[in-house]
Write a protein that binds this DNA or RNA. Sequence first.
DNA 1: TTTTGGTATTTTGCATGCAATATTAGGTTG
DNA 2: CAACCTAATATTGCATGCAAAATACCAAAA
Lengths: 272, 272
Amino acid sequence: MNAKNTSDIQKSMQIDADDEATSTESQFDRATEALRTLVLRGTFPLDVKLPEAKVADMLGVSRTPTRLAMAALERDGLLVRLPRRGFRVRSFSLDEVIEAIEVRGELEAVAVRVTAERKLSAVFRERMKACIVEAEAILKAKHFDAHERRAWCAMNDEFHTALVEACGMRPLAFAYRQVKLVPLAGPRDTIFNVAEPELLRRQLATAHEDHGRILRALLDGHATRAAALVREHAYRSGENKRRNFPHIEMQTMVMETPGVALVRLPGVEPEE
Amino acid sequence: MNAKNTSDIQKSMQIDADDEATSTESQFDRATEALRTLVLRGTFPLDVKLPEAKVADMLGVSRTPTRLAMAALERDGLLVRLPRRGFRVRSFSLDEVIEAIEVRGELEAVAVRVTAERKLSAVFRERMKACIVEAEAILKAKHFDAHERRAWCAMNDEFHTALVEACGMRPLAFAYRQVKLVPLAGPRDTIFNVAEPELLRRQLATAHEDHGRILRALLDGHATRAAALVREHAYRSGENKRRNFPHIEMQTMVMETPGVALVRLPGVEPEE
DNA sequence: TTTTGGTATTTTGCATGCAATATTAGGTTG
DNA sequence: CAACCTAATATTGCATGCAAAATACCAAAA
């Protein structure tokens, strides 16, 4: 049964990402990521109890690593623990998502201010430049198909991650990672409003311009300007999220943008 | 054995704080907090492997809740997981502590800006006023003995917590809680430089004044000023930490200010 | 029909045993 | 005496069994 379990999980992991160097990974690690993916994709009903035996079964591991995984996701804020009754999946309001993006922007702003006041190291400069080049390539495409969308998300995440890591403040990076755990709040969670192609293109183009300006401000050592640009960039991102979120074609987007499934439509409140 | 275990843990918990309403608490909860206390007090050597059987024995529970607790503390950043070799206690540089305080200050600054732009609710206004009254009482004392120090830490934590909670942004409060987990970085972790009484009094008096000014700026709706005051308050706190940290009389302070034991003296690096 | 009480079933939380891996000790050889 | 290999030991990670608590079920009474 052990063999079967392992293959089950590995299969489910292969669906979404990297399965390299699994030798150091424990069942717990795999179970955590597998469960995270399931939760973010909306596999479970929101705000109702999530029986741990069912999850263990689904993941194909025993209850021990499952419990570990659920505890981990609780600390990520995705699950809520009910004292003696297990866990439930937490839902998020769109407002909360946007607040998270605002906080994320503030942290990024601190990072760029600090970086600009010192000096941007060559490594990070190159990482960010590469992102900008990549973005230009993506924007040249006629349509934003799944491939382009995926590339954009990866590029955006990389740019913002570099932005934060460049300042070298461990506690800042730590907090940043936490804030990104709110569904849809990370730079990877772009919502592509395919219903309005010209709006979509404008949004992406603006973001691309922002990136360029931010990098230049960094290189010029304009700390305050860079911070302001980053704040505005985040604000725009929040606006876009509010605008684009209701227009999602669920079927496509739920698979493509993990976390969409956890966000309630405006006005809808959780029962309890 | 079960009865013995429980009493062991409860005893160790009683040392430091509240043991009310334990009925909903699990072994895991108690184990986590007990272990956190042990770690922060420097019970274990830094940066070397921490065998889980030893810990389980110490906490008086079996390895299952111990493992849960260690995983929890890993996510708090206090422990580091070595792939197939368990956990080790992480040490922190003083610089990292100060960076964490800076980030904390930035988050508080966002909170007060948002709060001031809206309006400070009566509940929080009263909470903060109460802190200020309390601080005045403490500052009247001739000496800052254990009792006063304890009261000051509680007051300070309460004030800063109220500051952040007042803005009502869940993701912000979440990030804030994370940053506070860095040893010595929280508002509760004041270091009292008893070797220099007049310096100590000046530091506390200044902090008290800061609090008053911050509250007034909030009430007046001066968002930018309030944010600036909070930033400066945090900066001062970092400065004080750097100044006071080397002067600690370890024996007293390690017990009184949890986390001191995890911070390396400037210049000392972890082996590995 | 709704409420109450009591029982059966499910589920959680924990301790433990076992297999796989890592660590240490001891001994052998260059 | 150091380097290396091998055997013994300790430790981790996981599955599982069991007791306690929570939940569901159902019947009887208001």
